[in-house]
């Protein structure tokens, strides 16, 4: 059976993608930021995942308002990046794993999540910047196959934090039910606080960012008490991307311990952060699900 080795939360700010593309990792301005991913690389080398399930949000590359799925799961053998329109370099394709994707989709739909399955899916910076940070091309070919999961953060109404956390629970159950000896890491990308639009553009809330980083480890259910309007108020119109962190955290079904955590402050318009959470065993899952049902 597949096992979940842990979860990673990371920002996916386009400027980071630009820095990766330009090879600025050792420039003085960028070195402290990129160095903070070295413990992440060390952990990945230790746990050696075969597959990364990457929960992100599309910013208008694959999905438009004509069809806007709340939760879309990739089921392709290959995921291409493409021109996003404002100058980020296009990166090479990522390997998929259709059999695993369909296993996840079947299990999550059986758990009453109405998933949109995608046999073609362009992945944008929400996916590619995270992948470039976790598996830099300098370290050789990407060692994992991937399953992208896109969460709607474009068109209101957005899925609530509680709904996203529950999706994560269903995802964790689906991964562990897959009948193959696979090691899986779940990645949640985006955030933290930022707002690009309106007269409140430039809004940042470090206190709330730090609260999210604390609660995501020890008490993720506390974050499910917020509504989407609460989150927009507290973390900015685009800071709601933290719901993808909640999907990731929901998928960690066992004992979770923090391996690495770094808050960087603002890059471009956005609070940047990275966290690694190790998932040790699934023994507690039934007990936790019972508690979750009572809580929600």
């Amino acid at each position: 059976m597949a096992t979940i080795v842990g979860g990673i939360a990371t920002s996916h700010i386009p400027t980071i993608g630009k820095a990766i593309g330009k090879g600025w990792c050792n420039e003085p301005e960028w070195k402290p930021f990129f160095d903070s991913y070295k413990p992440v690389h060390a952990w990945l080398e230790k746990v050696r995942p075969d597959v990364a399930v990457v929960v992100y949000n599309d910013h208008g590359l694959n999905f438009f308002l004509n069809n806007m799925p709340t939760f879309a799961v990739g089921a392709a053998a290959r995921y291409d990046n493409s021109d996003e329109g404002w100058g980020l370099n296009v990166v090479p394709p990522f390997a998929g794993y259709p059999e695993f994707s369909w296993g996840l989709i079947e299990s999550m739909v059986a758990d009453e999540f109405d998933i949109t399955s995608c046999q073609e899916m362009l992945v944008d910076h929400g996916f590619t910047v995270a992948m470039g940070l976790l598996w830099p091309k300098e370290k050789g070919p990407c060692p994992v196959r991937t399953v992208p999961i896109s969460v709607n953060t474009v068109q209101s109404p957005l899925p609530s934090p509680a709904r996203c956390y529950k999706l994560g629970r269903a995802l964790g159950k689906a991964i562990e039910a897959f009948d193959e000896d696979l090691r899986v890491v779940v990645v949640g990308t985006g955030g933290l606080s930022h707002q690009l639009d309106g007269t409140r553009a430039g809004f940042v809330n470090k206190d709330f960012d730090l609260l999210c980083m604390e609660k995501i480890v020890t008490d993720p259910e506390a974050l499910t008490d917020y509504s989407i309007p609460d989150l927009i108020r507290l973390t900015g119109a685009q800071g709601v991307e933290v719901i993808q962190w909640l999907v990731m955290r929901g998928a960690l079904t066992g004992q979770v311990s923090k391996v690495h955590s770094r808050y960087h402050g603002v890059i471009s318009n956005t609070s940047a952060a990275v966290m690694v959470l190790e998932n040790s065993c699934a023994d507690e899952r039934h007990a936790r699900e019972h508690v979750l049902q009572e809580h929600l």
């Binding site: 209101s156 309106g198 553009a201 989407i228 927009i232 108020r233």
Partner: peptide, 20 residues
């Protein structure tokens, strides 16, 4: 009228159905 209009957030535009 959407439920989000009940949650006015200063300086913030909610991209709801009407705006879409």
């Amino acid at each position: 009228k959407t439920s989000l209009e009940n949650h006015k957030i200063p300086g913030t535009i909610i991209f709801d159905g009407q705006r879409a």
